[in-house]
């Protein structure tokens, strides 16, 4: 798989994650359950989402088409 394709895939996944953020998958109205480690659903799923997005950013930074661009 080429670096450019992985970069595009990262971008697409970030967009999907953003869309999910505003759906009941991450922010169900008035729903606190299920709890994980004592935390309500929106908080722990939001924290996991943040780490997934950060992971995608790390991968994206390694395969970004402009990574080896020489600044003048």
């Amino acid at each position: 798989m080429s670096k450019r394709l992985i970069w595009q895939l990262c971008g697409a996944l970030v967009i999907i994650m953003v869309i999910l953020t505003f759906t009941p998958v991450i922010t169900p109205k008035g729903v606190a359950e299920p709890f994980l480690l004592g935390m309500p659903y929106t908080l722990w799923s939001g924290i996991i989402l943040s780490f997934v997005l950060l992971g995608l950013t790390i991968i994206g930074s390694l395969v970004h088409p402009g990574r080896d661009h020489k600044d003048q």
Binding site: C10, G11, V14, V18, T21, I26, T27, P40, T42, L43, G46, I47, L49, S50, L53, L54, L56, T57, G60, S61, H64, G66, H69, D71
Partner: peptide
């Protein structure tokens, strides 16, 4: 707890945007 989505999630998406558009701006 929605405040986490308001700032933390938004900030990480911003960071991805920094990679994407920041390169073009430079």
């Amino acid at each position: 707890v929605g405040a986490w989505i308001f700032l933390a999630v938004s900030d990480i998406v911003m960071v991805f945007g920094l990679l994407w558009i920041g390169h073009y701006l430079r």
